[in-house]
Simulated assay, not measured.
Amino acid sequence: MSNVALIVPERAADIGSFMVGRLLPFRQKRAVGPFVFIDHMGPAKMGPEENLDVLPHPHIGLSTLTYLFEGAILHRDNMGNEVEIRPGAVNWMTAGKGVVHSERTPDYMRKAEKALHGLQIWVALPLDLEETDPSFTHVEARDIPQLERDGLQIKLIAGEAFGQQSPVPVYSRLYFLEIKSSITQTIQLGDELYGESGLYILEGCVRSDGNAYEPKQLLIAKDSKLCTFEMEAGSTVYLFGGEPFPEERYIDWNLVSSSKDRLSQAREDWINQRFPIPPGESDYIPYPTRD
């Protein structure tokens, strides 16, 4: 990517029963457009006694986007949704004024060898929708727009670009693209992008301005309109961003808001068990204690 402003390395983080690579937030860059949080899950090989078990936990003020490359996750929430997500599909959950969900290995996979690999993303909501009613949408892989262009395979996972719009119901102007190249070539996408832009390298190599960038690196552009880079054959990258909000967003654990007072209220509500737990669940993640 020409005009690289910042290189963000993947950093190990523990989400309870699973280690992930954290990309956002970063101390020098808290958000890219409305994207405020990105975790890279895996790739992980899991034995018959190893399973993903993220117990019920709350969110406010954001939408979550789950996108898998390999494996499966069973989503349960306190709206009554119980949905299994598979590779290429999208789970889009809007927390708004408050939601609780769990993420687990499906029952039929729990005693088998399995793999898990994907991205977990939080997208902040516009100020006037931070307290909207919660909702959940599942979009199958076959319904994600796909384009073939000059040796590129492009999926518009969320948002709008290339004159198309994903069926994922986003609430602000953004884009989240998967780009695969079958040949080594220079990619020029500046006219398709807007706002702030980040590029995550999943596999292969990206070159720009004489520098080579490898997997597990997130590149932040100075100007999305100047987004030009070379992809090696067999590379896969994820390009995301959009228009940033004028107000700062604060994060407290799994809670996001433009108001610190609202974060405090949500924190107290969770500690005092005022959020309902999803059907089929009995335990939950307590608010983390700090030394």
Score class of each variant (00 low, 15 high):
93 M>H: 02
121 I>Y: 03
136 F>R: 00
144 I>W: 05
158 A>H: 03
87 P>W: 10
161 A>Y: 06
32 V>Q: 11
138 H>R: 15
153 Q>I: 14
66 T>Q: 00
160 E>T: 11
167 P>Y: 07
36 V>R: 04
140 E>A: 12
133 D>I: 06
140 E>I: 13
32 V>G: 01
163 G>I: 13
36 V>D: 06
110 R>C: 08
31 A>N: 12
114 K>E: 04
147 L>E: 08
66 T>K: 09
78 N>C: 02
121 I>R: 07
78 N>L: 04
158 A>T: 02
41 M>G: 00
53 D>I: 12
91 N>W: 07
49 E>D: 11
141 A>S: 12
52 L>N: 02
91 N>L: 10
86 R>A: 15
88 G>A: 07
140 E>Y: 12
147 L>F: 07
42 G>Q: 05
103 E>D: 01
93 M>V: 09
89 A>M: 05
101 H>K: 02
52 L>D: 13
153 Q>C: 15
120 Q>N: 02
62 L>D: 09
137 T>L: 07
32 V>R: 07
97 K>L: 06
64 T>A: 06
141 A>Q: 14
133 D>K: 11
83 V>D: 11
79 M>D: 06
133 D>P: 13
159 G>E: 02
61 G>T: 02
82 E>D: 07
94 T>N: 02
69 F>D: 06
64 T>M: 01
137 T>W: 01
166 S>T: 05
44 A>K: 15
127 L>I: 15
131 E>W: 09
151 G>T: 03
82 E>T: 15
162 F>P: 00
38 I>Y: 11
129 L>R: 15
159 G>Q: 01
137 T>F: 04
32 V>L: 11
111 K>N: 13
130 E>S: 00
35 F>Q: 05
35 F>L: 09
88 G>N: 09
39 D>M: 05
71 G>H: 04
159 G>I: 02
118 G>D: 03
134 P>I: 04
151 G>L: 05
34 P>H: 05
90 V>Q: 08
73 I>D: 08
94 T>M: 01
96 G>M: 01
74 L>R: 12
85 I>E: 12
93 M>Y: 00
120 Q>E: 07
71 G>S: 03
45 K>F: 15
128 D>T: 05
42 G>R: 04
63 S>T: 14
39 D>L: 06
171 Y>S: 14
169 P>V: 06
114 K>R: 10
112 A>G: 15
49 E>P: 14
46 M>V: 08
114 K>V: 03
76 R>C: 05
151 G>E: 09
128 D>M: 08
162 F>I: 09
112 A>M: 11
168 V>T: 09
127 L>Y: 13
54 V>E: 11
167 P>A: 13
39 D>P: 06
164 Q>P: 13
126 P>L: 02
130 E>Q: 09
79 M>Q: 13
48 P>I: 06
126 P>C: 01
41 M>L: 14
107 D>E: 14
108 Y>W: 14
71 G>W: 14
140 E>P: 13
57 H>D: 06
53 D>G: 08
92 W>G: 04
28 Q>L: 13
153 Q>N: 14
152 L>W: 09
38 I>W: 14
124 A>D: 08
60 I>P: 02
108 Y>Q: 15
170 V>K: 04
98 G>F: 00
113 E>D: 10
151 G>S: 00
139 V>K: 02
172 S>M: 10
76 R>L: 08
167 P>S: 11
129 L>D: 06
141 A>G: 03
79 M>A: 12
